[in-house]
Design a protein around this nucleic acid. Structure first.
Lengths: 348, 348
DNA sequence: ATTAGCACTCACCAAACACGAGTGCTAACG
DNA sequence: CGTTAGCACTCGTGTTTGGTGAGTGCTAAT
């Protein structure tokens, strides 16, 4: 059986309708539409064909038809048109980024809430991955006799700071010496490789400072650890307002699935190799995500991918709109990140 | 009608039972309990008295009785005994604070997740309030030709940092000059009072540096603004797993109520004058919170109150347990905060 | 004062029923 | 041959009905 023009149109109409109302759509309601002048019987025949081809499903004998995952796939691949954002929507998105965030964490949170507020789905953001990043510069700021703030600038221009404890009776000269030493040793080091190799290789020549260096490196490692595998979620309860979750059982199931952030992390990690990705229902590898859809986008600074964000919603998702929003958000986030690191672009 | 010993015992039994099962409790189930040897009829008489006194309610004629808010109030005021935490629970709480958080924000988040995980209710934390805090010391760390990190230490020992943009062609000498100037002018200033008075009073003598100072003060003000009125929430979906929220309508109502973080902020703010507070159902001022209970505790550093945290759950709440948990959490959080600011205690 | 006994109430559940949206099939039509 | 009208059939949904049981209040006996 081949897919002709009319079948396509009918399928699209069904999907559009279903996305809007979440109710199975029947032949009559379609034939009544102004832009269709075929009878319901004809539509029934076509629908029966479409069902045979695997694009439609019937929840039960005498209900309307519901699009299958295959239909959604076809839809996003060829039928769907992007819903252009109007000025109001663009403004709304911009507004989230206007309150200047001062660190990456803030920006990531802003992105997540913006996404979830605007799409009304659940948003997830994978923060810029520290692992492959290199150390460009380190400063120590003494705050009191016994503690200092270690400020670290990465080659990508990000800043992290860590509170550290100073050994007793340290003076300005010592501090400068430490700073110099740290910079010499750690410059251009990858953050994830740092500790293991380095503390050993420099241990012999450090003498009395050794304990201190050790604790600094540990603090740094802690930072990297803590950053790893984090996924920022927002709008976890948004989905509950969609009719597919109107019974508590499904809803709980979904909420429990979200607890396992690791699954989401893996998912986003995998998606980070693609500019955009759309994963529909069963296409998801994780068992607990087999009846939701996930749309992601990867954000960059210049050409370098930084992280991935996306939204999670029912398979009956407003794909066109979501993609447009992600697209615009990708732009906004990249700009905001760039604003954060300003002129200090990586040289490569 | 007076409240005798036996009435009290019966009331307590009803409350305990109801807290556990969420089902109206009947006279027979009570009389069957081993430690009661009075007949169900007697209990019925007593219950009828208790109802007249306003401690019990009947959802409908032939259901059991349910404790009223007045009963809960009596319960927390005089009957309730604190459920001592066992070693396992203490350990569990400690564990959340063990992963060293490096800044206050991290600690606040840890507290919130710890609270919600352990109580299985919704947790809220009011971060340490910056407003009344004074500036002790400011450092500028140059990160690149055009930007610097401003590091601020408060009299309470907290640290905040803000990224700022430097004017063109600045050298080390300028930076030192700026730092000195900022410290002279802003030392001992209250963070919330800072901008308005200060920028004007110093504007005359600044000359060319004026624009820069202005932007620094703006960045600082931004920080204070952003910190204000934030409430960290965790476990918003926990409540959905309690039977009172098994129908979607109630659940949604509750979730929407949480959106209005401002209400929660006001609530916590008000509670911050008390060591502990328990607010039951209608006692809540905010309309949308009239059928939940809120238990809060204020955490301190030394004698100075820093902020408030608490949990939000059904009126049928395990008050004894919750209070014990909050108590222990208060201790843990205060310790953790102290660890963060270490030896640098406020002098007063 | 306590308790046994009893009639009464009412939420809850399941079975029965009507309703209606939607289908598939057949036969007629252009 | 594609299209359409007509019709019998299916099946989820909403409503009604009756039975069940937990629980009550009242009365009379202990």
């Amino acid at each position: 059986m081949e897919m002709d023009k009319r079948k396509m149109r009918i399928l699209q109409a069904i999907i559009d309708d279903y996305i809007l109302t979440a109710a199975p759509v029947g032949s009559r309601s379609l034939s009544k539409r102004a832009d269709f002048n075929i009878s319901s019987a004809t539509i029934r025949n076509e629908m029966s064909d479409l069902e045979e081809m695997g694009y439609l499903e019937q929840p039960h004998t005498s209900a309307g038809r519901v699009p299958s995952n295959k239909a959604y796939r076809l839809y996003v691949n060829s039928i769907m048109q992007r819903a252009q954002l109007n000025e109001t929507e663009r403004k709304a998105i911009r507004a989230y980024f206007n309150q200047r965030a001062n660190q990456v964490e803030g920006l990531v949170r802003q992105t997540a809430t913006a996404l979830s507020d605007i799409t009304r789905y659940t948003a997830m953001v994978l923060p810029p991955q520290l692992s492959t990043v290199r150390i460009k510069h380190i400063s120590l700021v003494q705050l009191s006799p016994e503690r200092a703030l270690l400020v670290l600038v990465t080659d990508t221009g990000f800043i992290r700071d860590v509170l550290i404890r100073l050994p007793e009776g340290i003076d300005n000269y010592d501090l400068e010496r430490f700073t110099k030493r740290l910079n010499e040793t750690l410059h251009d080091m990858r953050l994830d490789r740092m500790v293991v190799d380095e503390v050993t290789s420099m241990s012999e020549e450090l003498g009395a400072d050794r304990a201190f260096f050790q604790s600094v490196l540990e603090a740094l490692e802690d930072q990297v650890q803590q950053n790893a595998q984090k996924v920022e979620l927002a709008g976890t309860t948004n989905l509950l307002f969609h009719p597919e979750y109107s019974d508590m059982a499904k809803a709980k199931e979904f909420l429990v699935a979200l607890e396992g952030k690791d699954t989401l992390y893996q998912m986003l990690k995998k998606a980070s190799s693609m500019e955009f990705s759309i994963t529909i229902g069963e296409e998801n590898e994780a068992e607990e995500l087999k009846d939701v859809s996930i749309v992601t986008a990867t954000y960059r600074i210049g050409s370098q991918p930084m992280g991935t964000f996306g939204i999670l919603g029912p398979t009956r998702m407003h794909y066109g709109r979501v993609i447009s929003i992600l697209e615009y958000m990708q732009l906004s986030l990249s700009e905001a990140l760039l604003g954060l690191i300003e002129q200090d672009r990586p040289e490569e």
